[in-house]
Design a protein around this nucleic acid. Structure first.
Lengths: 193, 193, 193, 193
DNA sequence: CATGAATGAGGATTCATTCAT
DNA sequence: CATGAATGAATCCTCATTCAT
């Protein structure tokens, strides 16, 4: 499996750094190769083309988000706590990797429609898990089941996304981790039964 | 004033159509010029460069959003009603101009960081008016004044934005106008005192 | 019409020189542009792509061959004389343009199959005129009408082509024009009734 | 001797197949290696470089042409019969190996000037044998000794070559072997005393 | 004011060849 | 002898912008 080889990871990590530091449009393949410490041509032994690198950047990291969220879902805790853990973990993962935060919140959105469609496909899995928490909450009486599930999801994700993008655009100057409590409280107030 | 001349408006309108129909990356200056019925060079008599056209596209339309919102703020109605009018009017303006909806929610986000910083500058005026509604609500006891104003704003705008983007990405297949009531109710529930 | 503009001809002429001097695979677009005294991008105002330049090189010159041959066909001279004029004129045109001789006899044959198919399409018109001379000769009793017309044509063209290629590969060191009499005599002997 | 080892032949045969099936420009070394069932690097134990493979392809087969022609020359038959046997054998060898026919008549001509010079060197030996037949014919009074020997050779080879190329380009749809009689007759008529 | 022909910088990708194992 | 992962040079084309008319 190619993605288990060390150079695969080297290149994905290099891509994140190069995109974060130079911006999406200035992230040339040769720059990524140099950062990864491999020849330009080596990139193409592991990736079909440049787009394939970008998809992989998103997928590799998103896998961690999904894995964490699946673990949270399995825990024997309340719906409210699950939502808090989701928000807090999501914020934490971006807080811990400032390069990745820039890449997902700003740079990867500059891609063409086709690439974004693929990114959305990956994102969908994450949003489905969020839907599962929301449904569970509506079923167990914690959340207001008269609220449209899609609207609820858009509110949760929209609020998180806007909060994260603002934080990144302000050069991550304030403490993101302090915000998860407030975001959770607001969301719970909006959704509770 | 250049922006009062007929060709200025011709070019801005042409840009919206060309971007919406071809996507941001396929919206060449020559295509915009052709759609506007002017020569390529004429564009540069009215705009500094291509970025300037895009900023203007955003500014011209955003002026209407701001004008409408200022009018709403002046009305002698409750804070809740003001928020509803804001959401409903915002949705309506995008609902009425499907091209502009595509351009703001999808295409204009593919621009580089610098351009988006400028767009955010324009957007800020609109968000300040939203802040004014929120402050007013907190002052008159309608809204919970323990909520951080920035967080409240991010929730309101994030929810609206996520709702609009989903609608555009689903090819505007369902009725956006029906959603304003639900969005307003959710937001009020989250923010009310 | 683009091909009437001076730059069109400039570029075609430059392409012939660059290909002849550097070889087909070393004839970069930028080299052709430099030789033509225009910017790289200007090439693409007159030609769809690099292949289009090469087709045009062949077409432009071949038009002269065809025009001349059509004129020869109309003359009130014997079949033998027509064949001689064809050979002599063909040799003369390549003799007068040493660059074009290299390009057609050596370099243009290195192209891919697709391009050669297109070149053959242009060449076909010339060979059809040759067929007309041969048919006329068979009809008026000058040439042996028991010879397969296709074979006759292949003999005439094959002999000319081999003669020309040998001359070019020997760096055009001997006098090509002296050969047309011998080639004509040999061909007439082979074909005469 | 490297060329006696089994892998040498494997690689040459693989090259013919790969070039015939994919075309010269799509015949990558890695494809040839795969077809031959060896590693890419192994190619370079038997050949100096890619060009060297192509030369060898030509040489290996041309050796058969030459061997056959030498045998024909030794026979106690007339000059006319020798010429017929040469043409008939040449056609037959290409008729029996459709891949090689494609490679020599079409694909190997797409090579650069330098490689074709080398190919011509190999071909020269064959053409010298042809010259010997022609000289013999002129000496024994069968052929017209006033014809320039080089011109005679160009006519013979040019006619054969043009006939073969046409046959290959028409996808070898008609029976090549039936053409040798006609080609021989035409050539004899042209050259006879 | 308006035109549109001309400019020229910039980058993803392929593939022959090498060399450590 | 044999392998195959790694190398890195090399090029066509687009399109925002200019400026002579």
């Amino acid at each position: 499996m190619k993605r288990d080889k060390p150079k695969y990871k080297q290149i994905v990590d290099a891509a994140i750094i190069v995109i974060a530091e130079n911006g999406y449009h200035q992230a040339q393949v040769s720059k990524i190769a140099k950062e990864a410490g491999v020849a330009d041509g080596t990139i193409y032994l592991y990736f079909k083309n440049k787009e394939d690198i970008l998809i992989s950047v998103f997928k590799e990291k998103m896998a961690i988000f999904i894995e964490d969220l699946e673990e949270i879902l399995k825990r024997n805790i309340s719906t409210s706590e699950k939502l808090f853990k989701m928000i807090d973990n999501h914020f934490r993962l971006l807080h811990e990797d400032r390069y990745y935060a820039i890449v997902t919140q700003l740079e990867l959105r500059q891609t063409n429609k086709e690439l974004r469609m693929q990114i959305n496909g990956v994102l969908k899995e994450y949003l489905t898990l969020l839907d599962n928490i929301l449904k569970e909450g509506m079923d167990n009486g914690t959340l207001d089941d008269s609220i449209d599930i899609r609207l609820a999801r858009q509110m949760v994700f929209g609020t998180m996304d806007e909060t994260l993008t603002s934080w990144v655009m302000k050069d991550q100057k304030y403490d993101l981790m302090k915000l998860s409590v407030g975001v959770h409280r607001l969301i719970m107030k909006a959704l509770q039964a």
